[in-house]
Design a protein around this nucleic acid. Structure first.
Lengths: 216, 216, 216, 216
DNA sequence: TATGAATGAGTGTTCATTCAT
DNA sequence: TATGAATGAACACTCATTCAT
């Protein structure tokens, strides 16, 4: 977990939150409460649907206190997304060499499981992020960076294992998993976990290695 | 005594107010303007971000006129989504038998092209729909139905062509394409159209037919 | 999964938002201003005619501040009515034993004077209350309770002094005074105050003790 | 009943409705529908609560047609009130000489019964009228006239039968009955009809003839 | 460090009224 | 005579943000 945001993150607007300053223990505790509450509320209500009122209520602090640590809604959101991105990128890097052997299957299956688990955990933010991504120009950068950093990592891994169009496949894989985790989250798939993971692994193998040779 | 004061405020009546009635040419034209404007604005600003003010301004009509034809934002949104769903389902049904022959490749490639084109056209609504789906309980039904009807159709097609786990694969395919079209829309993929389609077709073939035998 | 999207919009929560909480001096002062302004505006424009805009303008505060202390127009109105009802009920209880002696006349006259004075003061609310009573089902309860509690008190007093049909008489008396105070308020009676009180007292005595024996 | 408004009734505002003109059978029918619908809707929702939309919907005609016959809501309302006032004044005149004999009791009781019945029928308008009376200056005149014409008639009758303060008593009686009819309408009195009329007659006798002589 | 109080700008919605047909 | 269509002005209510304490 380790979500202690002490890195300075300048706010783009006039209002400069106190977040740049060093915080005492009490302040750090408040920041943590806000990040946690933000996670829940953004996940539940989406980016635009989330209101600062809900966030501070869930965090159990006052409205005004929010502005001591974040300059506005965006600022809090960015903090959450950046944390999430970091974890996701780390996961992308952890994808070992996948082969068509049994070991490769197990390796890929394990990675997918970790991926979906992480999505289940960070999913809310990503979901809200998709919304913000398309809506606010300001988040375009954030979105691009995320996407690029993640797909670049994935692409390198895929290229290393001989996937024919690693760039494209990375996008397809990322997109598929991203959306799939959503369906899982809303329990739309209707298949048991183990069965789902087995099937999904096979599907992804197909994506990575292409179909068996046709009669052509 | 019929003295129960329950005169429902129109907004609580839920249904669309006049759209059911017969409309004359002028009225139908206004509805069309509203649907078009709604498409654009929902696509640009998302579900919550879209304001009726923006919609009517883009449609070039007055705020009040909006409520002559739709009972509220939801109502317009539903109309758009239902239209889009219909087209998408039709497309799902148009997926012919895919084989690993050259003809199969061409068939699948053509279908993917039509799919992405339709997404590019309807995409805005779907995008907003994802947001609404997760946010408003009222749209949960709409979302489920859409998803189910679409994946069911796709699943049948896949089963017919021997895909091992058609249910799961339908979800994975739908999710992948859904998200992928988004990347295309925001021009994040960075690959030429033809090249992209070729690669994507191969990836999807892999999803459908599984990887080559792992004896290598 | 706690994923039911039922976040109630504040206006559906019904209750008064903050009025229950402890308020500091400044907040209490604002509430008082709102109650005063509400009294005036409801009295002047009736229940439906009163707009929150008018109320906050007269109170000299901003629109949004209103919602810090009352959840909507109803909420403020209820608060005013409940206060008024309390005072009226207290007055009903203060009606001492009325007899046909001079002391009884004086006692009753004094009570009627206090009653009309209180009506003149609280009248605006009652007037608006009559309107709301007939219009909104939600106020039906409030109306019934008020009426019942008030007439019950009055009925007990009347029964104690030997009035033949105390229940009916209580209603008649209450209705008469209620309406009469309205005429007084709009200066329709056209008789001096003392003269009016003398005459009214005699009329009420007639209501309480019935007409003289009809042997004449 | 006889509610055929063919008397010209000039509208005070700029918009001159066609009501002045002679109407053909079809037009008179439409006017009747509007008056009936107005009666119901004003009675149900009060003056401000009544919307033209509701009225024309209940009348089964179009919004625009309304303005062919009435220049606005007030205009329709006035028409209804004037009709009602006429009937009420007629009733006031029908109050024969009341004495303390049995015949007098029966006479008064019959009159009260007719009064309450008429109130039950016209009551909705009166109720709405009270609201409008206090709210709009424009109705002040209408209110005064009504009140004066009615109380003047009543006062003459009371004076004729020896009531000591006929002016004041007329007001008190009118007010009492007005309000009482409201309680009856909302079934708040909780006493059987015959019993109620007996008691009410006695109470009114008391109002008219004053209390029995005290020991003073 | 924390917060109660206050607000301007906005959003969805309604309604009386007008006009072209 | 009748009406479908359109609208300006108003209203209730919300929310991100600021400030004095």
């Amino acid at each position: 977990m380790e979500r202690e945001n002490t890195k300075p993150r300048p706010s783009e607007r006039g209002g400069r939150p106190a977040q740049q300053r060093e915080h005492l223990a009490r302040g750090r505790e408040t920041i943590r409460k806000l990040l946690d509450a933000g996670m829940e509320v953004f996940g539940h209500d989406g980016y635009r649907g989330a209101s600062i009122g809900d966030i501070v209520q869930r965090a159990g602090i006052s409205r005004a206190t929010f502005y001591l640590y974040f300059s506005n809604k965006d600022d809090l959101f960015r903090a959450l997304v950046l944390d999430a991105v970091e974890e996701m990128t780390g996961l992308a890097e952890s994808l070992g060499p996948v082969t068509l052997t049994d070991e490769g299957f197990v390796e890929l299956r394990g990675w997918l499981e970790r991926y979906l688990d992480l999505c289940a955990q960070l999913g809310p933010v990503f979901h809200a992020w998709t919304e913000a991504f398309a809506t606010k120009a300001a988040f375009g950068d954030l979105g691009s960076q995320t996407l690029e950093s993640f797909t670049a990592t994935l692409e390198r891994r895929l290229a290393a294992m001989g996937t024919p169009t690693p760039h494209l496949t990375a996008f397809a894989l990322l997109g598929m998993l991203d959306r799939f985790s959503l369906y899982v989250r809303y329990q739309r798939v209707g298949v048991g976990r183990e069965e789902m993971l087995d099937g999904l692994t096979r599907v992804v193998q197909g994506m990575l290695f292409g179909p068996p040779d046709g009669s052509s």
